[in-house]
Deep mutational scan, measured.
Amino acid sequence: MDSLVVLVLCLSCLLLLSLWRQSSGRGKLPPGPTPLPVIGNILQIGIKDISKSLTNLSKVYGPVFTLYFGLKPIVVLHGYEAVKEALIDLGEEFSGRGIFPLAERANRGFGIVFSNGKKWKEIRRFSLMTLRNFGMGKRSIEDRVQEEARCLVEELRKTKASPCDPTFILGCAPCNVICSIIFHKRFDYKDQQFLNLMEKLNENIKILSSPWIQICNNFSPIIDYFPGTHNKLLKNVAFMKSYILEKVKEHQESMDMNNPQDFIDCFLMKMEKEKHNQPSEFTIESLENTAVDLFGAGTETTSTTLRYALLLLLKHPEVTAKVQEEIERVIGRNRSPCMQDRSHMPYTDAVVHEVQRYIDLLPTSLPHAVTCDIKFRNYLIPKGTTILISLTSVLHDNKEFPNPEMFDPHHFLDEGGNFKKSKYFMPFSAGKRICVGEALAGMELFLFLTSILQNFNLKSLVDPKNLDTTPVVNGFASVPPFYQLCFIPV
């Protein structure tokens, strides 16, 4: 009986604490739906499609509103004006990374994606500088992407125009580009180590996009005490870190300090320079996690976009025909596509942009946080508050993009057929937390897609009208449904 009384008292205290925290903070924060004790607004949000729920709530509470995930307040920004004001106009104040408990377990605050403060700034600055020195957006990395595009075309030829699921092959190409940047090595598509790495990356994007992960991140005790797919994700990350550590040891034994070959060499050189400046942010643990982040951000996002792009091109054969006509006119058949071609191919450029806009790969991006107490639109948001960005509300804005739910390359073309930029184009987020590999991803999408369409016609196994382009999961990332196609050599 005594234990029951204690339990009831504990629960009562928890409920009172929950109510007090919510009521004391709500006077400062933007308005929002009334949260339930302990669980907050979790029942009012469709976990399978958070973005749709945010759109519905914005119609009631406006472009800036507050939700509670458990006891934790989260300020939501919906629509271009609110997102721009926060991420661009007040970029420094909104540059923090929001709480992501599962990532905390995986990387302990290291790396480039989930770190904060001085650690994040130094690692991000170093990573950007190193990638630029190796030619991100310049010639040397373009050579690597072109080489991988040629290998991709050869792998597709091996399908002999038979029906195939493109998931694996389209994942190999961007993964190999990242391998060449980090390890100075590309792998054969049949290499077992490479296959294991690909498998872990593919599993992780599916797990991260599941409703279960949303629950884990908002009720963090689940991570330590409950079984579930989150444990598989943590094991996959541990596998990748151990693999990278092996490569780091190989580099330490063979590195030429006067001739760095890749990202690992550059990081080890930085560690050597910083060894007298303790404590340094440049450690082996930081290198492991930064490399894992580059793999995660640079492989599955690009391969998922490529997979979605081919599905949309199957669905819209008239678009595919126009792209192939432009390829034939500008590039021809006797040389590989290059980035200089893009400025002469406005329709193809528009298609690449429209694919990214339409699929809305990361509907709410990753959570941000404010780095200080900030007054925002007459609300006071306390330091450390998590900020949720609705990228969907920007990419699918119906004023900027008429009929935003329709796939239409003319969203990025003017009346004369010239490519038209849009400030609403934010597939990689915006501001200080914009994806480090934005330029690389854009290069890969253009070169891989043009190389495929230069060499193959795409054949659907069903009537294009019957192809479903609805994402199968739409949590962290929008993942396309399973499909097969035939690559018919031109």
Rank of each mutant, 00 (worst) to 15 (best):
C486H: 07
E147F: 04
A149Y: 01
T301W: 00
T167F: 06
A430I: 12
P221A: 10
E142R: 01
S393N: 05
L197S: 01
Q214P: 08
P317R: 07
F428P: 01
H344V: 12
H276A: 12
K420Y: 08
Q44T: 13
K185N: 08
C164E: 02
Q214V: 11
F219G: 07
L152C: 02
I452Q: 00
R97E: 00
K118A: 14
M426N: 06
F94R: 01
K48N: 12
L29I: 05
G298Q: 00
I284T: 07
G475C: 07
L268S: 04
W20L: 13
A439L: 14
D89R: 05
Q193S: 11
L268M: 06
D191M: 01
R342C: 09
S127C: 14
L447V: 11
T304Y: 05
T392D: 12
S115V: 14
G384A: 04
I178E: 02
G111V: 02
G475V: 06
N218R: 15
L380P: 04
T229L: 14
T371E: 13
S303C: 05
D373V: 02
S365V: 12
T320I: 06
M136S: 10
S51M: 10
T386I: 08
N418E: 11
E147G: 04
E328G: 14
K235T: 08
E104V: 10
A291K: 01
T34G: 06
V8F: 14
T305P: 01
K119H: 13
K247C: 07
V292Q: 04
Y61V: 02
S390I: 06
R139V: 11
H230L: 09
R144E: 05
Y61R: 02
S58V: 08
E81Y: 06
E142K: 01
N289D: 05
K375V: 08
K190S: 10
T469C: 11
I42L: 14
L458F: 04
L388G: 03
A291I: 14
M426I: 12
L71H: 14
C216H: 09
I389M: 14
I327G: 02
K315P: 02
P166H: 00
I359F: 12
R186M: 01
V60D: 12
I488P: 02
F239L: 08
K273C: 08
W212V: 10
L361G: 03
D224R: 15
D468G: 06
V83P: 02
I182P: 00
S58I: 04
F239R: 08
Q324M: 04
Q278A: 11
H344R: 14
V352S: 05
E318G: 13
V330C: 13
V394R: 00
F194N: 01
C164F: 08
E199G: 11
N289L: 11
E93C: 08
T229F: 13
I327L: 07
Q44H: 11
A149G: 04
T348S: 08
A350P: 01
D397N: 12
V394H: 04
S343M: 12
E199W: 05
T66S: 06
W120L: 06
P363D: 01
V177T: 04
P227I: 11
G62T: 02
M257H: 14
V319A: 08
E253L: 15
N218F: 15
E400P: 06
K206R: 13
S336A: 14
T290S: 10
F487G: 00
L461K: 08
D408A: 03
Q192Y: 06
G109P: 06
R21D: 10
T301E: 00
N378C: 03
K383Y: 03
K206H: 07
V6Q: 13
C435M: 01
G111D: 06
D463P: 11
F446G: 01
Q484R: 11
H411Y: 02
P33I: 02
F226S: 05
Q340D: 13
K118S: 15
A369L: 14
F65N: 02
R139Y: 08
Y347I: 05
I222L: 14
S422F: 04
M255P: 09
V83T: 09
E400H: 11
R139W: 09
T305F: 04
E285P: 06
C435L: 00
N403L: 06
L461I: 13
V479L: 15
V38L: 14
I327E: 02
L9E: 14
R124V: 03
H276F: 11
A291T: 07
F194G: 01
F482P: 15
M257T: 15
L306S: 01
M339Y: 10
D165Y: 01
F412G: 00
H410L: 08
K432Q: 08
E92A: 11
P279L: 13
M136A: 10
L131E: 04
K200Y: 05
P404S: 10
K84C: 10
